[in-house]
């Protein structure tokens, strides 16, 4: 082993990577060569100086700066449209909730109005002019009105107790007359009455017609029956 070969084996010898024969030859050359021995000593000391270098501690700002940069990277990883919408997410939810509440309220109010105006519900209170809905004249009644307000027919028991002179009167008299207290006197007149006799033009009080007490009595009984019994007339 010459000086050049020995110098090439400096690191391998220190790192213990040489085989036994090479180690023996290396050490033999160092013991014989003063120059290589001095160079090897210098080589080992300089390496020791390198190993003695102090450790560099990162600054206090290192962790904070790294966390900030990592957060930026995580934000950049989010798609653009999500980044735009994310700040508005809370407000959007609030606005959508408000819209939903308003929609539910509007829908409810709409159906409530429909219920009031729907004649099928039987709510007569919504009618602004009851006189139009429940005409006293049978010929102007609609099919719905006939179903909802059938002509009351007293039961046989009632008919046995009360002597009705004319059964046809039931066909002409609508029920629930008392629900129209504001009716004018003219509306209270059944159509057939005008055919039987001609009342004076100035007579606006049909209730005072004492010349027909029996007819008034019948009306009173009919009203009682219709408000206490089902429309089919099952008796008192």
């Amino acid at each position: 082993m010459n000086c050049l070969n020995t110098e090439e084996q400096f690191s391998a010898y220190l790192d213990d990577e040489l085989d036994y024969q090479t180690v023996k030859a290396f050490e033999a050359h160092l013991s014989d060569c003063e120059s290589c021995r001095r160079e090897f000593t210098l080589f080992r000391k300089s390496l020791n100086l390198l190993h003695q270098l102090p450790q560099i501690e990162p600054s206090r700002e290192f962790d904070i700066a790294l966390q900030v940069r990592l957060a930026e990277v995580q934000v950049e990883a989010i798609p653009f449209w999500q980044r735009v919408l994310q700040p508005l997410y809370g407000q959007t939810c609030l606005a959508l909730s408000g819209i939903a509440v308003l929609f539910v309220m509007a829908t409810g109010f709409y159906f409530y109005q429909e219920t009031l105006s729907d004649p099928q519900s039987g709510e007569i209170a919504a009618a602004p002019e009851p006189s139009r809905r429940i005409p006293l004249v049978e010929g102007r009644q609609t099919e719905w009105q006939r179903q909802q307000f059938p002509l009351a027919v007293p039961s046989r028991e009632l008919q046995s107790l009360v002597n009705f002179p004319e059964s046809s009167v039931f066909n002409l008299q609508p029920v629930r007359r008392s629900q129209q207290p504001q009716f004018s006197a003219f509306n209270l007149q059944p159509a057939h009455r005008t055919q039987q006799q001609q009342p004076p033009a100035f007579d606006l009080q049909p209730a005072r017609r004492i010349q027909q007490p029996q007819r008034l009595e019948q009306n009173y009984i009919l009203q009682t029956v219709n408000y206490t019994e089902a429309p089919t007339g099952g008796g008192l």
């Binding site: 110098e7 090439e8 400096f10 690191s11 391998a12 990577e17 160079e39 210098l42 080589f43 000391k45 300089s46 390496l47 100086l49 390198l50």
Partner: peptide, 21 residues
């Protein structure tokens, strides 16, 4: 890799020669 490391150490030795001696 091994030869470069050894070469680097030899360079370092020469650089530090005056300081070590």
């Amino acid at each position: 890799t091994k030869s470069r490391i050894n070469r680097a150490r030899l360079m370092l030795k020469d650089k530090l020669r005056s300081f070590v001696e």
